[in-house]
Structure formats: C-alpha cells, structure tokens
Design a binder for these strands. Structure first.
Length: 493
RNA sequence: GGCGGCAUGGCCAAGUGGUAAGGCAGAGGAUUGCAAAUCCUUUACCCCCAGUUCGAAUCUGGGUGCCGCCUCCA
C-alpha cells in the first residue's frame, strides 16, 4: 500500500510519487510574524509535522522548507503602534514562533528563509516576469498581469470571467487605478514615506506577499517541488497567485501536490485574528494544557476537516492523553529490545500494518490513533497497577510480548509526534476554573497538618471527622487522594 | 451571486456498497471506611425525501442546515 494524498489541484485522492524516488521536497507557507501564533497555526503545523514524520518513517529523505513573512503591512502597523521597528517586531515574534513550535514537538524545518533575506531572488524573479511580459510596472509598482496567464484559477477553481461582477464592487483606490485588470496583484510596491524599502529596477519599494514564496521555493528547492502545504484559507488568492508567478516564469509546474488543512473553528466560526476569537498557543499551554493534549486534540480529527475548539473537546483530549501517556511511560521504562519489524508477533505486525494503512489513507490520524489506544490499553492498565505497588504487574510488564508492544507503541506514537510527558497536568482549560482571587490558599504546612489530623481520625474510625477535614480542604481548592499504604497525596486544583 | 466542503450516539470523531473504529462523558460491577484514582463490562441503524442495488451511513437526484474562500489570514 502506498501513501495517498488529497491534492487540491485535482480535488482527488492521488497516490503519492515523488519526482525523485526516495526524496521529497516540501514547501510550507509559514507565518507573518506580526503577532503570536494561535491554535489555528498550531493545528496546521502539527498536521504538516505529522506528514513529515510519516514520510521520514516511511523511508523518504525529506527536505522541508518553511518561510517567515517579515515584510508586511501588519508588521509595520504593529511597529508603529508600539514605536519600534519592523525588525524588532519580526525578531520578537520569530523567537516566539520557534519556542511555541518546540513546545508542541514540531520538528524544525530544514531551512526557514525570510523575505528580508530573499530580496535578490525576489527582484530577479520579478525582472524575469516583466521581461516575459507576464508583469508590468506602473508608477513604481509592478503588477502581475492575470489575464496574460492561461490557467489562472486552476487551483481554486475560479473563472475570471465569472468573478468580474465582484471585482467591480471593490472599493476604488489609487492602487486599483494603476492596475490593468482588477485581479492583477502587486509583485512590487513602490515605497511610501517612512516605510522600509529596498532598491529595485522599478524604484525603491518592497515585495508583495505572494512573490516571496515563489522566489523562496525556487531558490531553496527548484522550479518544481513535490508538495506545497498551507491552510485552506491560502488557496485563493495566495497559492493561486504563487502558481501563476512561478509557472509564468519557469514554464514548469510549481508543485505536484497541494495540501491544505481545515480551519480551527470557535463556535462554528473560523478562529482568526480579525474576528478576535483566538487563543494563542502559549496562552493555552501556560494555562496548564499540555502540548501533547493539544497535539492529540488536533490529530483526532482529519486534517482537511474543520475542527471545532471547545473546552469539552480539549478536556476529552486531556483525559485521553493521560491514558496514552501512562502507557508510554511504562513502555519507555521497558528493557531495550530489537525493534525489527520483521520479528514482530502477528498481532503487533497487524497493528503496525493498520497504523500504516490509516496513515496511507490521506493521513487518517484519527484511525491511526485508534491503533495507538488499542496498543496502549493493556500497558496503561499495568502501569496503573505498578503505580499502586502491584509486584505481579511489574513482572507481567517485563514479558517480551508486552515489552515489544510497548516499543511498537513508542515507535508509532513518535510518528505522530506524541512524546511521553513526566509531569501530570491540570485538566483546567484556562478560563477561570481556579479558585477565586479572594480565597486565601492554605500553606503546605497547614495542609500537611490537616492530613495528619485526618489520618488520626481515620485510625480512630472517626470517619465523620476525617471527611469533614477533606471537605474543608476541598473548599479551599485542595484535593486529597488516599493511596494504598495509608499515604495521602494532595494537590491544589 | 460564484467556487469548494461538511451533516454519524450526550460530546469529539473514523468508516465511502455487506448489518457502525477510537477517545471523552454516562451506566453497571470490582476496589475503597467513604471518596478520588484505577480496572472490567456496557450504550447508535448514520439530517430529510425519492431512487439504483439481493444489500447503502457509504452510489444517484432533490431538499434542509452549517462552514470556508471570493479582502489580510494556518
């Protein structure tokens, strides 16, 4: 069985065959670094991280390039708001992006080009397009002539003729007046006072958004790449324009497979900065949700479908992750054994096969996760028995069959980027689930004293008193958990 | 208005012709002084209507509802 992917270009599920056998070149549209990333970005980059890990696991040599858009109106606006510079805003948000991705266990791209460092490639590409008559300069700007390019609209399924009416409804602007056709888009924007600009044959200015990707793809990976990735909201106009620019210049197909991920929704609506309904990755993680919970949450749905972000669904993922994590912990502690796939027991070989079949089917991570949960089930049970001091369970877990099952679980979880976490997480989702600010929390010493008192009450079989202490602490946000052997643990909720 | 997509149990979500994966929640049981945690067991006929077929959640037609893109956006 081979990997099949839904190609936006054809809207069909197609067998994946790289241009060069055994090698895959991937370009992923990165972020515009004007602010922190939110859950929509997390979902997208987690999905593509899984694609990449799966290709590597399948034996491909993958080259993964992802850009930073660090020249943009939004960055300039942000810099103006805070009285800093475009560079300062970009640097800060790039650092934050790297940190957020690392927390989510997303593999760093092989190369991360920036628009500000790709000016030569951008100017050269624009020059080529102008020379070929695919683009024209107008008053310091350079525009791509959409009507000159046969095939414009092939990715998004648009017909320019049918789009005319809408274009007529657009707000007229100076820029619109310079265009030969309303759908023409800027490759180069003449500089405005006070804005950063670069020299060019068409006068000082800065590149448009779409051209940077075309230039970077060509510079980093060549005229034709295997896979181009991005959010579904980039299909039009960004990717459509990218195709037009690149293909007009090179005469070659830009990318053979176009993959797009579905949006993260909140209350049925797309999470976005402009709607203001977003949660940043770090706000969520800092609220106590573990990175792996977020990963599991996004991977439970198919990458192409919209994913509704709700507190309930996140909590479900947190609980699910807890179980998987326990199994992974036990597996990781198991003796090191050879993981030769050929030597697997029939049931494990079948599980591995089902996992691969699921992933081959357009990255069906939901079905792949079902395999993980099934593998994890007995391990999780043993892990919990061991935690309770069950010696027999430890012996059971050490049997070759279960150790091998654990190794397989670790391996497959790794393909999804799911990594064992040591610290327990709080199930809180960050929106005021803690105790109110007015309630003073007791000190550790006070809690310990209460626990000692309760143990005395229990020893005296005065359960009413023992329960009263537990309830009192509970009211202060302290939860008591009795463990075997008379040990009582506690945690602040 | 144009283009594209989705509709499966209380919630999330797989399944694209042969009588519904998985996770969460719920229920019953075990364990516990009681809880919590844990373990075991268990819960659906697939938006509506009409077709195709021996047989459809799965194909066709119609309807309803929802979402994305058409402006920056993962």
């Amino acid at each position: 069985m081979t990997l099949k992917l839904t190609n936006t270009l054809t809207r069909r599920l197609e067998p994946f065959e790289p241009l060069v056998p055994g090698q895959v070149s991937i370009y992923c549209c990165g972020v515009t670094v004007y602010d922190l990333c939110h859950l929509g970005h997390a979902r997208s980059y987690i999905a593509w991280d899984v694609l990449r890990r799966y290709l590597i696991w399948s034996g491909y040599a993958v080259t993964f390039v992802q850009n930073y858009t660090d020249i943009d109106d939004k960055i300039l606006n942000r810099a103006a708001e805070e009285g800093s510079s475009m560079e300062a805003v970009s640097e800060r948000n790039i650092d934050a992006f790297v940190a957020d991705m690392a927390r989510l266990n997303i593999l760093p791209p092989d190369r991360m080009p920036r628009a500000t460092e790709s000016l030569a490639a951008i100017r050269s590409l624009i020059g080529e397009l102008v020379a070929k008559g695919a683009a024209y300069s107008a008053d310091g700007d350079v525009y791509f002539a959409v009507m000159q390019h046969a095939g414009y609209g092939k990715l998004s399924g648009r017909d320019l003729g049918e789009q005319q009416d809408n274009a007529a409804g657009r707000v007229a602007s100076e820029e619109e007046a310079r265009k030969q056709h309303p759908f023409d888009f800027a490759l180069w924007k003449g500089s405005k006072p006070g804005e950063p600009s670069w020299e060019s044959p068409w006068g000082p200015g800065r590149p448009g958004w779409h051209i940077e990707c075309s230039a970077m793809v060509r510079e980093e990976l060549g005229d034709t790449i295997d896979i181009h990735l991005g959010g579904a909201d980039l299909v039009f106009p960004h990717h459509e324009n990218e195709i037009a620019q690149s293909e007009a210049a090179s005469g070659q197909e830009l990318a053979r497979y176009w993959l797009h991920n579905g949006m993260v929704n909140v209350g049925g609506q797309k999470m976005s900065k402009s709607l203001g309904n977003f949660t940043t990755i770090r706000a969520l993680l800092d609220s106590g949700v573990s990175p792996m919970t977020l990963r599991l949450f996004t991977l439970q749905a198919h990458y192409r479908k919209p994913l509704d972000f709700t507190a309930e669904a996140l909590e479900a993922a947190a609980t699910g992750w807890k179980g998987l994590n326990a199994a992974l912990g036990l597996a990781a502690s198991g003796a090191a054994i050879a993981t030769d796939p050929a030597g697997l027991a029939p049931e494990l070989a079948a599980a591995r096969q089902r996992f691969a079949a699921a992933m081959d089917d357009d990255l069906n991570t939901s079905a792949a996760l079902a395999v993980l949960f099934e593998l994890a089930k007995p391990l999780r049970a043993l892990a919990n028995r061991i935690e309770r001091g069950d010696g027999a369970a430890a012996a059971e877990a050490a049997t070759p069959a279960l150790v091998a099952q654990g190794k397989l679980l670790l391996e497959l979880a790794g393909v999804l980027g799911l990594q064992q976490e040591r610290a327990a997480e709080s199930p809180a989702t960050g929106s005021g689930s803690g105790s109110g600010p007015g309630v003073a929390s007791p000190s550790d010493a006070e809690i310990e004293a209460q626990i000692t008192a309760r143990q005395a009450a229990k020893a005296a079989k005065d359960f009413a008193a023992a329960d009263a202490i537990r309830l009192a602490l509970q009211a202060q946000g302290i939860e008591l958990i009795d463990k075997p052997g008379g040990i009582t643990e506690w945690l602040r909720s």
